[in-house]
Simulated assay, not measured.
Amino acid sequence: MLNIQGINQYYNQSHILWDLDLELKEGSCSCLLGRNGVGKTTLLKCITGLLPVRDGQMSLKGQDITRMSTENRARSGIGYVPQGREIFPLLTVEENLKISLGARPDKARQIPPQIYELFPVLKEMKHRRGGDLSGGQQQQLAIGRALVLDPKLLILDEPTEGIQPNIVRDIGEVIRKLNSELGLTVLLVEQKLPFARRAAEHFFIMERGRVVANGEMTALDDELIQRYLTV
């Protein structure tokens, strides 16, 4: 599905990603782990085209996306839910969702009914402004907006940050349903290990801009946690 080979990325003179390799299999659900500042969000922004890479190559289902624009990556099947949600607070829920319709390759004009089935609260509040929603509801809106694209790869950056426990549980159930029942490939960054273990089947651990460990989630043992994740 997604293949990344030897990418390097810099902020001014600071070398952030170092010859990074990563591969996601189609239909997988993987969690990207690591301490703060190791380059996780930078990697996600490189995948989505929000940040350029100095060198290396990225491909999605065999198509080279290394120099592709963010908009064309969305059309190619990448949906992104950024850290902090970044919804439009003055637009209604429905208007927030409709913004993504313009990037659908099939030019659909209507919000897919599946979005409201996954997140009934969005249907109930579709005429309310995004800024009036709770943090958990805004997160559901941000995920729904990404799903409007009909993505093949869904990328979520810390989807449980600042969210009340009942909404965290609902989001976890939606991720599992999208992955197991609908075959959507998922990559998420997550700090909460219990959530990561429930949601994902595979893990990648980053340290100093590189992937230093990966495997089945069952192989994420105390030694790896102590070495790379404990603060």
Rank of each mutant, 00 (worst) to 15 (best):
R227P: 12
R227K: 15
E158M: 06
N36F: 06
I65H: 00
L32K: 07
L32A: 12
R54P: 07
Q5P: 09
D106N: 11
E117C: 10
I155P: 06
L147R: 03
L193R: 09
L188K: 13
D150I: 00
D55P: 03
G56S: 03
G172A: 09
C31K: 09
H202F: 15
L17Y: 08
E94W: 01
K40L: 01
D221T: 04
E86N: 11
E86T: 04
L22K: 02
I205E: 10
T42C: 03
L50T: 07
I16S: 10
S59W: 06
G130Y: 04
D64E: 04
R35I: 02
A108L: 13
I111P: 09
L149S: 05
Q83L: 05
T48Y: 02
G135E: 07
N166T: 12
A146L: 07
P151Q: 05
T218G: 10
N72C: 05
V93L: 08
L51P: 03
L91A: 15
S134P: 02
T70W: 04
G215D: 12
G162L: 10
I87R: 09
L156W: 00
I16R: 09
K45T: 05
D221F: 04
L32S: 06
A103R: 12
Q137V: 02
G162A: 05
F195L: 12
E86S: 08
V148M: 11
D222R: 14
I167M: 13
I115V: 14
L118N: 03
I175H: 05
G130R: 02
K45Q: 12
K192C: 15
N8C: 12
Y10G: 05
F88H: 08
R169P: 08
K98S: 06
Q57P: 08
S180D: 12
P105Y: 14
G131K: 04
E71I: 08
L43K: 06
L184A: 08
P112H: 11
P105I: 12
N96L: 01
L33T: 04
D21M: 01
I143T: 01
R176I: 12
W18H: 11
I175Q: 01
N96K: 06
Q226S: 14
S76K: 07
R227M: 07
P120T: 10
D222G: 07
G102H: 13
A103K: 14
K177L: 14
K98G: 01
M125I: 11
T41V: 08
